[in-house]
């Protein structure tokens, strides 16, 4: 039962943490929660579809279909998150000052909440398909009800961790919270870029260059509780390859550069 719980917990946690950071990031915006949860629903449906087409995916692209699919999803999420972070830099100030105005903008379709809903849908779809396959196997092999209970325990555990994180965000002052969620989203995006690179290395499309650059799996294992959290939130890797570090670094510097550029462009207008 606990084995099943741990498998599901691991798969759910990453998506749950990403969703909660995003929920915090759109806090206070009218109608945003509905869109984010809509994205989640789409993601669940999508993960079922992915699970259904596993066989076709496994044999696509000379057997590299899974890796290419995962890499495309990851890099799409990176692009969407980057877009959102830069947008927030431009409009975040107004957002903090005038929630009502933002609400109006959502209705007019100006706000990029739909982008974040897309991020949520893709993140849930990617992690969810493995959960669906696991559940399918459990039902198929007529396991004891304890295993199914473990499945839901893991699911609940992952969601609970996300909820605790979200509750923590709510305790912060609004301006500080937006700053933190933006930094976290940038780190999440960088971590996903590194994961995407890992998929391309696995498929043999990219060289690892040096693997691993370091090994901190003894001190802070990636599949431990803290390692899992850090992996989901800041892209922690216990044994990163040089190529993954390059992707992480390039992504993070690109986002920082874009944010700084917009800040500088904005600064003279404000004085």
């Amino acid at each position: 039962m606990f084995a099943a719980a741990i498998v599901v917990f691991r798969e759910v946690l990453e998506a749950a943490l990403v969703v909660c950071v995003i929920l915090a990031a759109v806090r206070g915006v009218t109608g945003a929660f509905r869109m984010i949860f809509g994205g989640m629903g789409l993601g669940v449906l999508g993960s079922m579809a992915v699970a259904l087409f596993t066989e076709g995916l496994a044999s696509a692209f000379a057997g590299n279909g899974q890796e290419i699919f995962a890499a495309v999803i990851l890099f799409t999420v990176v692009a969407l998150l980057t877009w959102h972070i830069v947008w927030m830099q431009k409009h975040g100030r107004e957002m903090v000052h005038d929630m009502h105005k933002i609400g109006a903008e959502v209705r007019e379709g100006k706000r990029p909440i739909i982008v974040l809903a897309g991020v949520v849908a893709l993140a849930v779809m990617r992690e969810g398909s493995e959960v669906v396959l696991f559940l399918e196997g459990l039902i198929q092999s007529n396991h004891a009800p304890g295993v199914l209970a473990g499945f839901f325990l893991g699911l609940a555990g992952g969601v609970a961790c996300g909820a605790i994180l979200y509750w923590g965000f709510l305790k912060l002052p609004v301006a500080q919270m937006f700053r933190l969620t933006n930094v976290l989203l940038a780190l999440i995006a960088s971590g996903m870029a590194a994961k995407g690179a890992g998929k391309l290395i696995q498929a043999g499309y990219l060289p690892s260059l040096l693997d691993p650059v370091w090994d901190s799996s003894a001190a802070l294992p990636e599949d431990g509780v803290i390692g899992q959290f850090l992996s989901a939130l800041v892209g922690y890797m216990a044994t990163p390859s040089a190529m993954q570090l390059i992707f992480y670094g390039v992504c993070l510097s690109l986002i920082s550069a874009l944010v700084l550029w917009h800040k500088r462009k904005e600064a003279p207008a404000r004085t």
């Binding site: 496994a58 493995e130 290395i201 599949d223």
Partner: peptide, 13 residues
């Protein structure tokens, strides 16, 4: 996680 490989193998695949 040691080999950094993760891949689904369909039933009978």
């Amino acid at each position: 996680r040691y080999l950094k490989r993760e891949k689904i193998i369909p039933a009978g695949g």
